[in-house]
Amino acid sequence: MTQKLKILHAGALKKPMFQFAKLFKNRYQDLQIEIEAHGSRVCARQVKNGKQVDIIALADTHIFEDILMPQYVNKYYIFANDQIVLAYDYFSKNEADINQENWLDILLSPEVVFGRSDEVLDPCGCRTLLVWQLAEKYYQKTGLQNKLKSKCVDNKIYPKSYDAALSVSEGRLDYAFIYLCVANRFGLKYITLPEKINLSNPAYLDYYCQASVEVQGEEPNEVDIITGAPIEFAIAVTKNAENCEIAKAFLELVLSKKGQLILEDCGLIPY
């Protein structure tokens, strides 16, 4: 019987996971690998609702604690770091003029359309709202986050950061707040935001903690408060893995020296 490895992962990890799968397939040629990507919260909820997978890799360590531990996962490995950037393309409005000083003015100009992912489905959406709050504080612009929120509604909010990036590359959005690794995956241009607001650096944990966002919790009428923290990615073998040994070998590949090089090549900072 053909052996199967089922991998469920955050959309942001599409490129590295595909490369790991390709490499793994060379090692286990008879192995059938199934890969599926969603927003991290959606991935975790699917496992909670009974979906069988061997490996789960998410863009937020807190989701492991909130949804998956200890019923569905015993332990998880924090393996990489990233940051939020403002991504755009050659055809985005004002692309020739935008820089680290004027990005807010350009986003708020009437002709510009920008997007993000949904905070309920995807940690990147939640983190974008945290970035906006921190930007208001950092630039001392009262009311900034509300102005950004009111300009970025409805069809400018996507299920995952990957979809927002795709919309930029296809011209439906001028700009999107996404992870740097996703911007790299799509070959998009980007503005790097100040470290105090881009959620990349553990040295600014205390500053990040000043921002928080309320999202719908796991139970009806439950509200979770998400506080600002550095962006970290984590991976685990699930408790209901059907192919535990193969799953552990895949995990070892991701955490190996070779894995570090692949992650770095995909724009992540490997641990």
């Binding site: 531990m69 015993n74 332990k75 998880y76 490995y77 955490l255 641990y271």
Partner: peptide, 11 residues
């Protein structure tokens, strides 16, 4: 990798 029986592990 610093791992316990359960919880997060870091290099």
């Amino acid at each position: 990798w610093e791992t316990g029986l359960t919880g997060p592990a870091r290099r």
